[in-house]
């Protein structure tokens, strides 16, 4: 393969890559320690609509990972970043558990709409309110556009259907800030002083993690854990840089071939 620029950063997905629910992927902690000894920056990137950084951090600590808050970059972080950058006052259609990540953001007299996953707020009145704001020119920002997700009691609608509905109602396009958007990966790398060509992403979602990263100029490694299903590696173009059984093998590959 063509030699690229020296690797400066590794982006790592959380759920499905480092852990599956409350179980750590075997060897993941040790592999992370090995990676941290190498001369690369590490960042943990995830699409979340419900969990604030603090909640993610608490779970990772409980599972035994040692991670700093500043090393975590989520779709909620990205949404907040965009809101701050553009000086917006958002109507937040977010679960209460996600509001922590928006502390200090002015939300009175809203002139923007941020849609995450908020079953309690996705009702007729609230969606009408969001609709009227967008129709009056407020930008629509989507934390991500997942169709549905798995809940203990079965499948449940994700934010995507509601974002799509609001887009249709107002004839506008949402700005999507989560994976697989290019801006997500670029924002995650911004404070690392690292160009996309100097970074690699490890994740279990072929489209959102690997496809998104590779379309943004990063390399992508697909791991066969979490939501991976046989054949996923063939579903994206370009194909994953490499497909590994799990996170530890991905780390070994990086240490052996890219550093």
């Amino acid at each position: 393969m063509a030699m690229r620029q020296a690797l400066k950063a590794v982006l790592i997905d959380l759920s499905g890559t480092l852990h599956i629910e409350d179980t750590v992927v075997p060897g993941a902690k040790e592999a992370l320690d090995r990676l941290r000894k190498a001369p690369v920056a590490v960042k943990f990137v995830t699409n979340t609509t419900k969990e604030c950084k603090r909640a993610l951090l608490e779970r990772l600590e409980r599972l035994g990972f040692s991670i700093q808050e500043r090393e975590i970059f989520t779709s909620l972080t990205a949404a907040r970043g965009l809101v701050e950058q553009r000086g917006l006052r958002p109507l937040l259609l977010l679960d209460d558990s996600a509001l922590d990540d928006f502390t200090g953001i002015v939300t009175s007299d809203p002139n923007a709409v941020v849609v995450g996953l908020a079953p309690d707020h996705f009702n007729y009145q609230m969606l009408n309110k969001a609709f009227q704001l967008i129709l009056d020119g407020a930008p629509l920002i989507a934390v991500h556009k997942a169709r549905y997700y798995k809940r203990k009691d079965g499948l449940a609608l994700g934010p995507g259907p509601f974002v799509t509905g609001l887009e249709y109602a107002t004839d506008t396009k949402a700005t999507v800030v989560g994976k697989p958007e290019k801006t997500f990966f670029l924002e995650a790398l911004r404070d690392l002083d690292c160009k996309p060509g100097e970074a690699i992403m490890i994740g279990d979602d072929a489209r959102d993690d690997v496809g998104g990263a590779q379309n943004s100029g990063l390399l992508g490694i697909l791991v066969k854990t979490g939501k991976y299903r046989a054949g996923d590696e063939d579903k994206i173009s370009p194909l994953p840089h490499v497909t590994c059984d799990s996170f530890p093998q991905a780390v070994d590959y990086i240490l052996e071939h890219l550093i």
């Binding site: 129709l135 609608l157 799509t164 509905g165």
Partner: peptide, 19 residues
């Protein structure tokens, strides 16, 4: 009392969710 979302919006939501 103002503009209200119509059925098409919820149709689109279900279309997107279920492809």
């Amino acid at each position: 009392d103002g503009l209200k979302l119509d059925v098409g919006v919820y149709m689109k939501a279900l279309e997107y969710a279920c492809d």
